[in-house]
Design a protein around this nucleic acid. Structure first.
Length: 255
DNA sequence: ATGGCAGGGCACCCCTGA
């Protein structure tokens, strides 16, 4: 089976691309979506189910919103981080084919002086604390999503342009390291990869054409899942679509 | 140092993203 993540930056705009992508990737058992930007009453559940998929979602208007689309039943759905009071819909967790999928849209943080940056760090604290427990009860666990963290300088097209800002700051990278300290493994870095592999490119300034991007979308796997993982790739094709999302899918293959 | 795209809300300029 394959599991995947994709920040679609509005499911209203991107639903046809998502359904096309699923049709073209028949091995993908479950796809985690971020930034659906849709409130639950207007979520396109009927269209997705009519295309033959199961779906679970937690949305809000304008901002955030997460969902899981799957070819198998979606069980034990949990919305947001248990015990962490959050008005924003950023996490959806569910079990598909025996794998515990945590689909997350980690806050951006805006800038290091912003309240949103403090929210990001507190949010990451809560996520780490909860995942530590969740991994106990669900050894086959994957954390997939838009982390808004570039873990290493090689995940940034031009570190000089980004250093000193969000996405690369030391506290954010330490949070990423704490996730790894739980035993979670960056699936992408388990395998040899092309240099300058990115998952996001700014809409402005022909960034995609210049490959001026960041690797901020990740799949982290528990030890039991990492042992089953035989590949992890970034699929840049959807970034070439008409009206693309600024992010592109990441896919992990589990044997 | 700034703005540049894109989406959505709201009513056309503003907020947010990364």
């Amino acid at each position: 089976m394959k599991i995947a993540t994709w920040n679609v930056n509005s499911l209203k705009v991107r639903l046809p691309q998502v359904l096309d992508w699923m049709a073209g990737n028949p091995d993908v058992t479950a796809l985690c979506l971020q930034e659906t930007k849709m409130d639950d009453p207007v979520f396109p559940q009927a269209e997705i189910e009519a295309a033959g998929f199961h779906v679970a979602f937690a949305g809000q208007k304008t901002y955030n919103g997460v969902a899981i689309i799957a070819r198998a039943p979606i069980d034990e759905v949990v919305i947001n981080i248990p015990g962490f009071d959050d008005a924003q819909k950023r996490v959806i967790t569910a079990t598909v084919n025996g794998v515990r999928l945590v689909g997350a849209y980690i806050p951006n943080g805006q800038d290091l002086e912003s309240d949103k940056y403090q929210y990001k760090l507190a949010w990451l604290d809560a996520l780490i604390g909860w995942l530590e427990q969740e991994m106990q009860s669900h050894p086959q666990l994957a954390l997939l999503g838009d982390y808004n963290i570039a873990p290493q300088d090689c995940d940034v097209h031009d570190i000089k342009k980004w250093e000193g800002g969000v996405l690369v700051s030391e506290p954010e990278r330490q949070a990423f390291a704490r996730l790894q300290a739980l035993g979670l493994v960056d699936a992408f870095r388990q395998f040899e990869q092309p240099e300058k592999s990115f998952s996001w490119w700014d809409y402005r300034g022909f960034s995609f054409k210049k490959n001026a991007g960041l690797r901020i979308d990740h799949i982290l796997l528990s030890p039991a899942l990492a042992a089953r993982c035989s590949a992890c790739v970034i699929d840049v094709e959807p970034r070439k679509n008409e009206r693309p999302s600024d992010h592109t899918p990441v896919i992990a293959t589990l044997d």
